[in-house]
């Protein structure tokens, strides 16, 4: 028997209602209302933290990244035009912050440690104790994925974003996103069958 394609649970009315409520909150927050921004923070902090945790594979770094994401979001609230979901926007900030962090980390290591193999000092290659208690195998397998493939895989298969949205979040082409996903799944299958 063939595997059934996964169906989208899309309810347009609910989505519209939520996005209007969210737009109101964002509007209020962008006028400098810290309390309203806290509501938005509480709504999305766990999702963003989970995302940062998976891409960085390090709880401390994930906490720092999550803080940076929300501070950046607060500063740039007025540039959020509402043509995408607020969560999508937050994820795109998270991806940027992560890539920036990686760049800084790499530069820092290049300056401080004179070595031929920078990767051995790379934080992401270290194994950390996860907060996720179950599914340790799959979480560890995800952490071994190459950077871009990992981002696309987490966004698509864990957070349920479509390729079009991922293209927007990670600033890549839709085709590239598909290619990364294909590669990530293949690598994961191999890793899990070891």
């Amino acid at each position: 028997m063939l595997a059934e394609p996964i169906k989208n649970n899309y309810n347009p009315e609910l989505v519209l209602e939520n996005s209007i409520k969210e737009a109101e909150l964002v509007q209020k927050a962008s006028n400098g209302d810290c309390q309203t921004f806290k509501e938005l923070f509480e709504k999305y902090v766990n999702r963003i933290y989970a995302f940062c945790m998976r891409i960085s594979s390090n709880p401390q770094v994930a906490e720092e990244l999550t803080q940076d994401v929300f501070v950046k979001a607060w500063e740039k609230l007025d540039t959020f035009r509402g043509d995408s979901q607020f969560s999508t926007w937050l994820h795109s900030i998270a991806v940027n912050e992560f890539l920036m962090y990686k760049r800084t980390q790499k530069r820092f290591l290049q300056r401080v440690v004179q070595t031929d193999n920078i990767n051995q000092y790379d934080i992401s290659t270290e194994r950390h104790e996860y907060h996720f208690n179950t599914n340790i195998d799959i979480e560890n397998a995800i952490s071994t994925l190459p950077e871009q493939a990992k981002i696309v895989f987490i966004l698509h298969d864990v957070h349920g974003y479509q390729h079009k949205e991922i293209a927007e979040i990670a600033d890549i082409e839709i085709g590239t996103s598909k290619a990364h996903l294909h590669r990530a799944r293949k690598l994961l299958r191999e890793e899990l069958s070891k």
């Binding site: 902090v45 933290y49 607060w74 799944r185």
Partner: peptide
């Protein structure tokens, strides 16, 4: 692939951080 996706679907989408991050964020803004 379906088996992999079934496994992945069990992963939590939301994970609470160990520390309260709001205080830091609030003081930064």
């Amino acid at each position: 692939t379906v088996v992999l996706l079934e496994k992945v679907s069990l992963l939590p989408v939301d994970v609470a951080p160990a520390n309260d991050l709001w205080q830091n964020i609030e003081s930064r803004i």
